[in-house]
C-alpha cells in the first residue's frame, strides 16, 4: 500500500490581520504549522501502513519554510517527504494547487491512496482534494470519518453526511479527504524527531513536473480583488437579574423585540 498525504503549512490563524488600505492580508512571522485537518490524514496513513504494510509519503506545495511542516510529519513516522516549490507557484489559488499536486502525484508514480484533511484552516475552501481527483480522473471520497476496510485494491469507508454517514466502496487508487472524527493523532517521539532531522526531502520545481506556469501562480483562474476584515459585531449587552427567571424573562423580551424569535 503506497499512501501519499497531501499537506499544507498554514499560519497561526488567530494572528492574521487585514491591512485594508493596502488590500492585503498580513501574516504573522514564524514558520506556521501543519494544517490541523491534515494531521488526521497523516495519522490515518500511519495506521493503514501499520495494518496492511506499505510506504507513506507527505507532499506539499510551498516555499522553503514549508520544510518544517514536512519534517513534523517525518517525525511522526512518515517515510518520505516531497516539497514542490517554485516562484511560478506564488499566488496560486486552490484549483491551481490541485493542478500542481496532481503533477506531483504523477511524477511520484504508483500510489494507492492520496489522503488529505477536509480543508485548510487558512483558505477554508475544501477544494484541493476533489480538484486533484478531478484532474487525475480518480475516484474521490470526501469527508471520510472511518476506513472500514482497505486492501486488495479497494477500500470501504464511511463518508460523513449532514445527518449521518454513507458507506462507500471504491477501487484504488483513490483520493480521500478525512475529518477529525477518524482518529486521534499521535505525538512525535524524541527518536522520531531526531530521525526526521536527517531525512532527505525531495524537491521538485515547476520544470521537474513539466509545468510551464500556465493556470498556476499569478495565472490562476480566480483573482482576489479585495480583502477586508469581517463586519464588526454590534456591541453586546449584559442581561442581569435577581433570579434566573428574571434573566430568562428579560432575554426573551429582547429576542422578541429584535424579532429573533
Amino acid at each position: 500500500m503506497n499512501i501519499v498525504v497531501l499537506i499544507k503549512q498554514v499560519p497561526e490563524i488567530a494572528l492574521i490581520k487585514v491591512n485594508e488600505s493596502a488590500n492585503k492580508v498580513e501574516f504573522p512571522q514564524g514558520p506556521g504549522v501543519v494544517n490541523p485537518h491534515d494531521e488526521y490524514a497523516v495519522e490515518e496513513a500511519l495506521r493503514i501502513k501499520e495494518k496492511v504494510d506499505g510506504k507513506t509519503a507527505v507532499m506539499t506545495v510551498g516555499t522553503d519554510r514549508a520544510e518544517s511542516a514536512l519534517r513534523a510529519c517525518l517525525a511522526l513516522g512518515i517515510d518520505e517527504a516531497y516539497l514542490i516549490s517554485d516562484d511560478l507557484f506564488t499566488g496560486s489559488d486552490s484549483q491551481a494547487i490541485g493542478k500542481i499536486l496532481s503533477a506531483g502525484l504523477k511524477k511520484f508514480g504508483d500510489f494507492d491512496l492520496a489522503l488529505a484533511g477536509k480543508q485548510a484552516v487558512d483558505s477554508d475552501a475544501s477544494q484541493v482534494p476533489a480538484a486533484v481527483a478531478g484532474t487525475l480522473g480518480l475516484p474521490q471520497i470526501m469527508f471520510v470519518r472511518k476506513f472500514e476496510d482497505i486492501g486488495g485494491g479497494k477500500a470501504t469507508v464511511q463518508r460523513m453526511t449532514e445527518d449521518g454517514y454513507d458507506v462507500v466502496e471504491t477501487s484504488l487508487p483513490a483520493v480521500v479527504s478525512v475529518v477529525k472524527e477518524i482518529n486521534e493523532p499521535r505525538l512525535p517521539s524524541l527518536k522520531g524527531k531526531m530521525a526526521a532531522k536527517k531525512k532527505e526531502i525531495t524537491r521538485w520545481s515547476a520544470a521537474d513536473l513539466g509545468l510551464d506556469g500556465s493556470a498556476v501562480g499569478e495565472k490562476s483562474g480566480s483573482r482576489t480583488v479585495k480583502v477586508a476584515p469581517p463586519p464588526p459585531r454590534p456591541k453586546g449587552e449584559f442581561i442581569e437579574g435577581e433570579t434566573p427567571e428574571e434573566i430568562a424573562d428579560k432575554l426573551f423580551d429582547k429576542l422578541r423585540e429584535n424579532q429573533v424569535l
Binding site: 487558512d122 479585495k226 480583502v227 477586508a228
Partner: peptide, 17 residues
C-alpha cells in the same frame, strides 16, 4: 464574497477569464 482564515478575512473573488 467569501470568508477565509476562519472568518478573519472577507475576500472578493472574481474569475480571470
Amino acid at each position: 464574497t467569501r470568508p477565509s482564515y476562519g472568518g478573519s478575512v472577507v475576500a472578493d473573488v472574481t474569475a480571470v477569464s
